Simulated assay, not measured.
Amino acid sequence: MRKIYVIGIGAGDPDHLTLQAAKAIGRTNVFFLIDKGETKQSLIDLRERIIRGYSHPHKRIVEGRDPDRDRTPADYTGTIAGWRHQRGVMLEGLIAEHLKEDEIGALLVWGDPSLYDSTIAILEEILGRGATTFAYEVIPGISSVSALAAKHRIGLNRVGRPFQVTTGRRLADEGWPEGVDDVVVMLDAQQAFTAHPDAEIYWGAYVSTEDELLASGRVGEVAEEIVKTRAEARERHGWIMDTYLLRRNVVEGGGIGEAAPQ
Score class of each variant (00 low, 15 high):
D68C: 02
D75L: 14
G78P: 14
T79C: 15
T79E: 15
A81Q: 13
R84H: 15
H85S: 10
H85R: 15
Q86G: 06
Q86Y: 02
V89H: 12
E92W: 00
A96C: 04
L99Q: 02
K100T: 03
K100N: 08
D102E: 10
E103N: 02
I104M: 13
A106Y: 13
A106G: 08
L108S: 03
W110N: 06
G111I: 02
P113G: 00
S114E: 09
S114G: 13
S114H: 10
L115Y: 03
Y116H: 09
D117I: 05
D117T: 10
S118M: 10
E124K: 15
I126G: 08
I126Y: 13
R129F: 05
T132M: 04
T132V: 15
T133R: 13
T133C: 01
T133P: 01
F134T: 08
A135E: 15
A135C: 02
V138T: 14
V138C: 07
I139H: 12
G141I: 04
I142N: 01
S143M: 07
S144K: 03
S146P: 05
A147Y: 06
L148D: 03
A149D: 03
H152I: 00
L156R: 05
R158L: 06
V159H: 07
R161P: 00
R161Y: 01
P162W: 03
F163W: 04
Q164E: 11
T166R: 00
T167N: 08
G168I: 07
G168P: 11
G168H: 09
R169S: 08
A172G: 07
D173W: 00
D173M: 07
E178G: 11
V180R: 11
V183A: 03
V184F: 07
L187A: 12
D188Q: 12
D188N: 05
D188G: 02
D188R: 13
A189P: 00
Q190K: 14
F193E: 05
T194W: 05
T194E: 13
T194P: 07
A195E: 11
A199I: 04
I201S: 12
Y202F: 15
Y202G: 06
W203C: 08
G204W: 10
Y206M: 12
T209H: 05
E210M: 09
D211N: 13
